[in-house]
Design a protein around this nucleic acid. Sequence first.
RNA 1: GCCCGGGUGGUGUAGUGGCCCAUCAUACGACCCUGUCACGGUCGUGACGCGGGUUCAAAUCCCGCCUCGGGCGCCA
Length: 434
Amino acid sequence: MDDRTYTTDAAPGETVTVAGWVHEIRDLGGIAFLILRDITGKIQIKFEKDGMDDDLVETGLGVHRESVVTVTGDVEEEPRAPTGVEITPDSLEVVAEADPELPLDPSGKVDADLSTRLDNRTLDLRKEETKAIFEIRAEVLRSVREAFRDLDATEINTPKIVATGTEGGTELFPITYFGQEAFMNQSPQLFKQLMVGSGLERVFEIGPIFRAEEHNTPRHLNEATSIDFESAFYDHSEAMDACETVVKAAYEGVAENCQEQLEALDLDEEFEVPEGDFPRLTYEEAIERINATGELDEQLVWGDDLPTEGEHALGQDVGEHYFITDWPSEIKPFYIKDHDDDKQLSTGFDMMHPTMELVSGGQREHRYDHLVEGFEQQGLDPEQFDYYTETFKYGMPPHAGWGLGGERLVMTMLGLGNIREAVLFPRDRQRLSP
RNA sequence: GCCCGGGUGGUGUAGUGGCCCAUCAUACGACCCUGUCACGGUCGUGACGCGGGUUCAAAUCCCGCCUCGGGCGCCA
């Protein structure tokens, strides 16, 4: 449509053709208004019944909400119109009629359950607030890519269909690959590590990960977007620096480029870019602080994983993004390197939002012998991972990296109550369609 | 995987044994209304997830199934 004018661009004095959805019709009797909505906003179409073509009035006011129409007419300045301008139509064409009864109300007068919204995502995304979430999500991904580029990292894409999992025994989706057993990849972990040993040295990947865990929570998905980073000649501390930079860049991008969207979500007042360095607590300090809050019935002891309740108590105590470092080796995966001076302590770290874990990372074990030993200690058969370990024989530099949950980043940034809100078509325990 | 709580017109809800041939809002249909901006007004259409049971009587209690949400574990 060459001659289409966006509603926000319709200037007084012009004759324009606008195209979009019928948001609402208000018929006051002798005068009626049709509110037309497009990507840029809304505009009012005025029908004064006296002196207007009867067919035009009948068509314009007979159309159902959410139908697609094009309207050609004169734009006039009108202080009484919501946007200060309105169109007096010469012609109106119903391009696609909508059913009179809609499965949810895009004008937002009546709430819909998340489940109803997800079943009707297209209609749901006609709402300002829902649309804003995904525009912000896009900005987060854009900013993150730019931040990675500033770090001189190369974007890569690794296989999602794999022969073995990352950590061996965890829950994977099995598939059949030309008669062979295969799985959906749960993480690009091993592949991105191989790339730091390649000529690329520093890489990142933004892509789907698949986990077959049958959890049922507002913060888990079975298909999620992982933002992964890995660099040669980085230690865990430098990896944390990069992590902080990238997460802050996401917030900065949204603050700079998504004011309108934040307003739509009623967050423009409270949205804050994290300032200063994220505190770095050791695991030991973390459990001590959790114990000191007195929120837990039982005191944590060294070696315990942090229970959800403990994460919440600590998050509230810290009150901002923070890292937990120096985890016990035994509760971190085999590919995480231990501290050289203390085999009980790993270089693994998590980056936390006050409400949940966002990032998991660490310095990697780059020494072939230690790596193979690690596989065996975790009860995994190193031979199954030959494609991975072999590379470590041919000059694998020390390296570190992390994985960030893309949806969790958006969710915590916007204070969404459910991670499914941050995915167009979420895949969870019971949802496989749409 | 374990545990808990829900499912009532298109949508969101009220109703916890008889007061319910089921409340309200919105949507939808008809009519009235010349400045609405959640327009207003009058009237109307439309629902108890499925199956079985208890009871004189079930939306309401019990059982099974389906389905949705949440807590934990685990994780991003």
